[in-house]
Design a protein around this nucleic acid. Sequence first.
DNA 1: TATGAATGAGAGTTCATTCAT
DNA 2: GATGAATGAACTCTCATTCAT
Lengths: 191, 191, 191, 191
Amino acid sequence: MKTKRQLQKEHTRKKIIETAYQIYSEQGFSATTAVIAKEAGVSHGTIFAHFSSLDELLCCLIQDFGDALGSEIHRLAETKDNIEELLKTHLDLLARHEKFYIRLIAERSLLPEDARLTFSNIQSIVAFHFNKAFERESSTIKDVPIPLLFNTWMGLVHYYLLNKDLFSPDTPVLERYGSKLTETFLELIKK
Amino acid sequence: MKTKRQLQKEHTRKKIIETAYQIYSEQGFSATTAVIAKEAGVSHGTIFAHFSSLDELLCCLIQDFGDALGSEIHRLAETKDNIEELLKTHLDLLARHEKFYIRLIAERSLLPEDARLTFSNIQSIVAFHFNKAFERESSTIKDVPIPLLFNTWMGLVHYYLLNKDLFSPDTPVLERYGSKLTETFLELIKK
Amino acid sequence: MKTKRQLQKEHTRKKIIETAYQIYSEQGFSATTAVIAKEAGVSHGTIFAHFSSLDELLCCLIQDFGDALGSEIHRLAETKDNIEELLKTHLDLLARHEKFYIRLIAERSLLPEDARLTFSNIQSIVAFHFNKAFERESSTIKDVPIPLLFNTWMGLVHYYLLNKDLFSPDTPVLERYGSKLTETFLELIKK
Amino acid sequence: MKTKRQLQKEHTRKKIIETAYQIYSEQGFSATTAVIAKEAGVSHGTIFAHFSSLDELLCCLIQDFGDALGSEIHRLAETKDNIEELLKTHLDLLARHEKFYIRLIAERSLLPEDARLTFSNIQSIVAFHFNKAFERESSTIKDVPIPLLFNTWMGLVHYYLLNKDLFSPDTPVLERYGSKLTETFLELIKK
DNA sequence: TATGAATGAGAGTTCATTCAT
DNA sequence: GATGAATGAACTCTCATTCAT
């Protein structure tokens, strides 16, 4: 049983994280703490009462995002037993977080070391599930080292995400090109 | 016939662009104008005597880089008549500019609109040559829309470049993984 | 007869004062209220439930310290009937509070007006006892106005305390130089 | 031959240092860079164009002050061949910089390491001249280790300076008490 | 043309203090 | 009485840009 104040604190922290998520999604990671505070409806100092520094806020945000993504992947991947399903699931998932995910991969180099590491860990969960699926279906797919298959897929997806402004400036890229990406990839890897 | 002054001016401009290229390659696009000026051996103000703003410097730099890259591609692609050669040539070219190219694709979102557009134009030159080669060899490669083939290749290469710190932190990525990338891609696209 | 609540309140207040004394001794008067609260095992707000402001806490702390020091001086000085004994007693007393006393004289200018005044009052108690002793032994000491004798002594002692980092960085200064200071002073004042 | 701009730059730097000297003299070392900038009639950023940080400004200021004081001491001490003259000269010198000197000794513990060290060096110049004078007149003064004689003098003077608010709140302390201090000290050290 | 000193808005961060619980 | 989350003004420092020289 939590006290009212604990709930209030958690609520504020959550509000900051959620607002940061929105602001970063829209403006990128160069958005300032003052903007986040204002948008979250808290004072500027409150951010630093919850996070010791901007870097820590970033880490927590990406950690939270990564955890959510990771567990979604886990849950969804369990029920899929073939590559096609897995690819679609993967894209569905990314589509749900498209804006933020794009910022993450586009501005990765600006992020503090910790945050970058956190994001790398997410990627390895995805890799794990793909590896399993690729191995299971290895008889029907081309004889290419599995990591390279995975990286080809990731590369293709990220390429479309990173170049959203060229491919699909106004609507989500994955909505528009998702099925083409899976089709293409499946066609390429099949024997 | 150019006056001495005009020559001097062009020389200074070139020096700034070249230094900016070096500095951005090493430190990324968050390097300051003061650092570039110092390294170029000119005064801080001189930068703004040649470029109306930092954004313009970036545009010109990337324009120059794009032009150089574009004409190299043109020249080299002319002599190559099959996909394999073209892929290798492409990677050789990128390898020669790896550091800067990585910064360009990694920090693209920080760049001003104009600079981003300029870079996109480079890509289309590359695409043009790939299209020709793919069409020529269409009988032996899988039945996949050519743009998607091209994007798969670009995605794969960029994925390795962007994740250089994971794949090959100390040595150039393309030196280490270049041949694996071409092999894999060729294997995937062949019928 | 005090209620349980009143006792509790007094206990908390005492705890804060004592902790502040320790913290200020170690870190100086730039230590924050948050640090004091944490170390005292009370909430940050509790400090302000007992003291209307940081300045008031400082005043009370120094008041308490001054009162304690003053009564100790009184008690000890009673039994001493010559200057030599008095000097030694004075140094013994300061030695017991050396760390805090140094902070007090070193960072006096940071303290609020009230706190500074409080500290001055302590000094006058010391002065009173010295005056008595000097008068009693006036026949054997040099013909110098008593206040100046007293200030010479205080100056000498404070000089060593304030420059502890030069004279004795690792061990208490008074332990190391106390006897030299009394010897010197006695030698100087004797006819 | 200096260019106009070099002169302008030196002038600004000097203006900042001088203003800082004035402001610190009046308000103590907790005065902010913004206040100094405003008072000096330059923009806030200008301070950091001349000094890489607040600490560096402090160091340069104290260095300058120390150098000036040191060379004045040297020059004046040369011509004085007895202790009495030396004491008077010393006090005259301090009197000319009384306000700043008081802040320096009163808030020494707040200063960055470097600045503290710089100040210590000044002291040793003073000590050097006193040592010489004490040695020369050793036959007529009490048999007390010279360093202790020096420290007694410094202690006495600093005690009056540090407690200016008690001894002489409105007028310079040394003007009011200077001669009493020299008289007393001379009386005490004579055999 | 080239210079570089000066600018000032804006960044992240700190901390004594408040007040609903 | 005690709590501690929230506050916001104030701090030092950065840097693209300007303009008198």
